[in-house]
């Protein structure tokens, strides 16, 4: 059963990868096609990246936790840093909207908000999953590891977005 759960999660993440790849492709395509791009709040993206990496680290500690209560504390920490990521993103959206960058204002906005918005929704689902993990599957190491796979994956997608969207734009 353990093997089945990991394989199932792997296939689910394969589906997710293709989904994000297509949205990223649209973003890159429209960035090439459009003239110029707005200034993005890079400092908020750096905070987001730092909280994602910290959260993934906490998750790896949770996986390695010797007792259930230890694991619970680390999962809580991972969820907390996920929450910080969401706050930083919310702030970044607010800054962009204040500057007039919206989903309908330009193709940059269209593809930027769709890509990051879809990632954001996944992170919200991920935070809820981490928060409810102990209730859904108490003491279940397989479930914990599968949740960790999902969480690492979302972290990796963010890192790609950070590099391509936030850093790539300045090259």
């Amino acid at each position: 059963m353990r093997q089945a759960v990991y394989l199932g999660m792997t296939l689910f993440l394969a589906t997710e990868s293709v989904f994000f790849f297509m949205l990223l492709l649209a973003f890159v395509y429209f960035r090439q096609a459009s003239h110029g791009a707005p200034d993005l709040p890079l400092h908020l993206a750096v905070i987001s990246t730092a909280s994602v990496l910290t959260s993934c680290f906490a998750m790896s500690r949770a996986r390695a936790g010797k007792t259930a209560s230890q694991a619970r504390v680390w999962i809580g920490a991972a969820a907390l840093f996920g929450l910080i990521f969401l706050l930083a993103q919310w702030r970044a959206y607010a800054v962009l909207l204040r500057d007039g960058v919206t989903i309908s204002e330009s193709l940059f906005g269209t593809s930027f908000f769709t890509l990051t918005g879809m990632h954001l929704m996944n992170v919200i689902a991920g935070v809820l999953l981490l928060a409810g993990l102990d209730r859904l599957a108490p003491g279940n190491l397989t479930a914990l590891r599968a949740a960790a796979m999902f969480w690492y994956f979302l972290g990796a997608v963010w890192c790609v977005i950070f590099v391509v969207v936030y850093l790539g734009i300045r090259v």
């Binding site: 429209f30 096609a33 989903i103 309908s104 193709l107 269209t110 908000f113 769709t114």
Partner: peptide, 14 residues
């Protein structure tokens, strides 16, 4: 639903 421009040729969409 959100007035994005992906496929809207008039605004540069494809």
């Amino acid at each position: 639903l959100l007035h994005a421009r992906f496929f809207d040729a008039a605004h540069g969409g494809s």
